[in-house]
Structures are given as C-alpha cells and as structure tokens.
Simulated scan of single mutants.
Amino acid sequence: MNAPEPAQAATLTEEHDPALWREGLRTGLPTLFGIAAWGLVVGVAMVKSGLTAFQACGMTLLVFAGSAQLASLPLILAHAPVWVIFATGLVVNLRFVIFSALLAPHFAHLPWRQRLLYGYISGDMTVAIFLQRFPTAAPVPGKLSYLKGLVLPNWAAWQAGSLTGIFLGSAVPAEWGLGFAGTLAILCITVPLIANHAALCGVLVAGAVAVLANGLPYKLGLLAAVFAGMLSAMAVEGLIEKRKARHV
C-alpha cells in the first residue's frame, strides 16, 4: 500500500474530529488543576516581586513559561545584566527545542503561523501526552483536533490561574504558604515526566546541584543545575543505548 501524498497527509491530520478533541480534553483534564495552581503561584510571585499588574500580565501572556518567569524575577530585582536574564530564560526553556523537534514531523505541513501558534500554547504535559497517544508521525485523521483538545484548555487554565494571582496577589496573606503550594504544583507537573532512568538521573543531579550552588550570585546555581541535569540525563541515555546495542 502506497504512503499518503503530502497533501493527503495534511488533509488527514487537519481533518476536524470532535471525538478526538474530546478525548484530548478528557486526557488532559486531570492536569488542569495543577497547571492553574502553578499559574496562580507565578502570578502572585510576579506581583510580590514588584512588577505592576500591567507588566505581570504582559509577562504571563507573552512568555507563558512559569519556570523561566520565576527564574528571571530575582535577576530583574537584582538589576542583573539583560544578557544574564535572557540567557537564564533560554537555558531554562531549552527543553522546548526538544519538544518542537518531536512535534515537527507531525505538523510540518501546517503554515508557519499555525505552527508558531501551537508551539506557543504547547506545554510540558501536553506535549508528553500527545506523543504518548501518537508516538509516530504517521498521518492520522483528527490528530490536530487531539492536540487542540490538550493545549487550548491547558493554556486557558494557566492564564486563568496566573491572572487571578496577579490581581489578587496583593491581598494574599504571606502565611498562606504559596511558596510551598508552588513547589507542590510543579512537582505534580514534573513527576509524570520522569518516564525513564535517564530522566530520573537528570532530576536528581539537577536537584543536588541546585542545592549545592544555591549561594551563587544572580541565581546562577539554577543555570548550573539545568546544565548538570541535562548532561547527566544525556550521558545515562547514551549508556542505556550502548547497552541495548550490545544485547541486540
């Protein structure tokens, strides 16, 4: 049987499928509370860090990356050089380069504006869930509908939580312990992504380095932790692949 032509593959992928849209929504639904909670914490943190409501709204709508937003806030307060702030955000979000490479074969046929839009509203959990449902780039009717069912509610939950945190942040008592709530929220997002030994090693190494390098200026310990975690995960993944190759 011949493979579908590119135009036919595009039609199959873009074909609207309400059933797959609902499936994507149902699959991603359990993560929305954690996403909203994490957005709430980031919204409060932005206001508590001295940003105006307008600035905080602009940041959450344009950046849409909680870890990068939180990493940049202490640097902004410390009047760190702009290149340090941008470099921190870039390194913290390097994982999205990998996500983009994984999603590209599925949607390379779409116009660049659509790809830009779906890239912007995609998040960690939504990409992981989508790739579990569609592990190969084979054309499947309604594949884009499934992605929309994941990413649109995820984006809306984040923005709702973040905007709520921004406008209510000044009224939230410090004794509510939102820092601890934020830790729990990000753990809820991170733990399901630890799918293999390489990822687990990366998380453990990054956590250890972050603690040990906590005293570095400009929060550069975070950069060191990200690099150490990535390199260790890649090293473990390489060792696992070599071991598999020897047993083939």
Rank of each mutant, 00 (worst) to 15 (best):
Phe33Leu: 15
His247Glu: 13
Ser122Glu: 14
Gly58Leu: 10
Ala181Gly: 03
Glu175Asp: 09
Gln8Val: 12
Gly50Asn: 02
Val151Gly: 09
Gly215Asn: 06
Ala10Arg: 15
Ala7Pro: 06
Ala80Val: 10
Met234Gly: 12
Leu147Trp: 06
Gly229Phe: 03
Leu212Gln: 00
His16Trp: 15
Leu103Phe: 09
Ser122Gln: 11
Trp155Leu: 15
Trp155Ala: 13
Met46Ser: 15
Pro111Ala: 14
Asn196Arg: 00
Ser145Ile: 03
Thr126Asp: 08
Leu187His: 00
Leu75Lys: 08
Gly89Pro: 10
His247Gly: 07
Trp176His: 05
Leu61Val: 10
Ala157Leu: 11
Ala80Met: 12
Trp21Asp: 10
Pro111Gln: 13
Ala9Pro: 01
Leu40Glu: 02
Arg243Met: 11
Ser67Asp: 02
Phe64Ser: 07
His79Leu: 15
Ser100Lys: 06
Pro192Ile: 04
Leu61Asp: 03
Ala108Thr: 07
Lys244Arg: 15
Leu144Ser: 07
Leu32Ser: 04
Thr88Pro: 09
Leu70Phe: 13
His79Pro: 01
Phe107Gly: 00
Tyr118Trp: 15
Ala228Lys: 01
Glu14Phe: 04
Leu117Cys: 14
Phe86Cys: 06
Val236Glu: 01
Gly142Lys: 13
Leu40Arg: 11
Ala157Arg: 06
Ala108Cys: 01
